[in-house]
Design a protein around this nucleic acid. Structure first.
Lengths: 205, 205
DNA sequence: CATATTATGTAGTGATCGATACAAAAACAA
DNA sequence: TTGTTTTTGTATCGATCACTACATAATATG
């Protein structure tokens, strides 16, 4: 049973992609339905018939963001040969990804969040979960590095992971403030310059 | 000529302080006039007669924040004996300040910002200026450390300052997500553990 | 053809936004 | 007292918010 009734005049994926860019640029609350429908090229009833509500549209947009724009940063963490390489890649890909286009800079998951602590607790908690998942991913990778002997057993993997994600979150603010790719890359360089001393790994001793 | 006419029934400073907390918690756009007037204990006409507009009130609230809550973090940068001590203090005081109370966590200047890139350009630019002032302050302190021989002449002070403020900005996100004081302190510890290797200063060589 | 089903555009819903008009109230000066 | 000045509370303003009722258009099915 393919389609009955009048066919849809727009592409759902394309419309969702444009909605994602609006949310990415303006955040959840500041993106009005007028902004969204104009960018998506549809009217409000079509939006509601297709996506349900503004909040549901945002949730879908976040999933699309994680799947497309945000994935490149974290997808190599498990496969990287060392934890050191994994984290260096996270920071360097971040610097590259956050300065790709002129319009949406920095991470949507980080930047769409802080204002809506009180209102929209649903949306806020979902974003928080995405944010913390990255920290857990890094912590797991670091623990594996300890098991494999790359890092000493005394390594505080939790603290180290928090340190990296904190720096990575800060890069979103810098990117929004207009920092260049070179500037962000220099920040990544700073982190990696201190890495061996920070982990107390064998390379430096 | 002290006061003419009917005297004001509320304390201006106290009302401003309460407005600051609302903005700090909810950001600029998400703080409605209803929220503000309720917290300040006054009606809308009194707010407008006293502060001019929501935007003017926010600007005053930001100045109050910088003068009171935010000052402790940066005020010792110039006077600290070394750049290393200055930056360690910035990060440790940040960890302490961001976990002081339960309600407003993280830096108001960082967290009230990202959503309002498009709208309220005035307010947004003012916050951005405050944010970048901290980076400049750190960069100047690091340059002084180079002149005084604490750091080698090859030190990239700009990159180093950006690295520190990026980490400090990230700590605002962590604080909003509920990170404990110990967690933030561990992040500061990580940064300082890598500091000597990062700066290539004499202590490590 | 007729009928069912789905999407579309127009137009509007009540609610809330930031901001005010207005008159009563409370202090001063003359 | 009488007038002047400033603040106060009430009751709103037009604009915009997220959202939807409704009739029409466009497809499928029978």
């Amino acid at each position: 049973m393919p389609q009955r009734g009048r066919p849809r005049r727009f592409d759902r994926e394309e419309a969702l992609r444009r909605a994602m860019e609006v949310f990415w640029n303006q955040g959840y609350d500041n993106a009005s339905l007028t902004d969204l429908t104009r960018a998506m090229g549809i009217n409000a009833p079509s939006l509601y018939a297709t996506f349900g509500s503004k909040e549901a549209l945002f949730q879908e947009a976040v999933k699309l963001y994680v799947r497309t724009e945000g994935s490149g940063i974290w997808e190599q963490v498990e496969t990287a040969p060392t934890a050191r390489a994994a984290i260096e890649q996270v920071l360097r890909i971040t610097a590259e990804a956050f300065t790709r286009g002129p319009s949406p800079r920095g991470c949507m998951i980080v930047l769409a969040a802080p204002q809506m602590q009180g209102a929209n607790a649903q949306v806020c908690d979902a974003l928080k979960a995405y944010r913390q998942a990255n920290g857990c991913l890094l912590e797991r990778r670091l623990k594996r590095a300890v098991e494999e002997g790359e890092l000493p057993a005394s390594t505080n993997c939790r603290a180290l992971a928090n340190y990296v994600v904190t720096l990575q979150h800060g890069m979103s603010i810098q990117a929004r403030d207009g920092a260049s790719r070179e500037t962000l890359m220099a920040i990544a360089d700073c982190a990696m310059a201190g890495w061996d001393a920070l982990t107390g790994s064998a390379q430096e001793a």
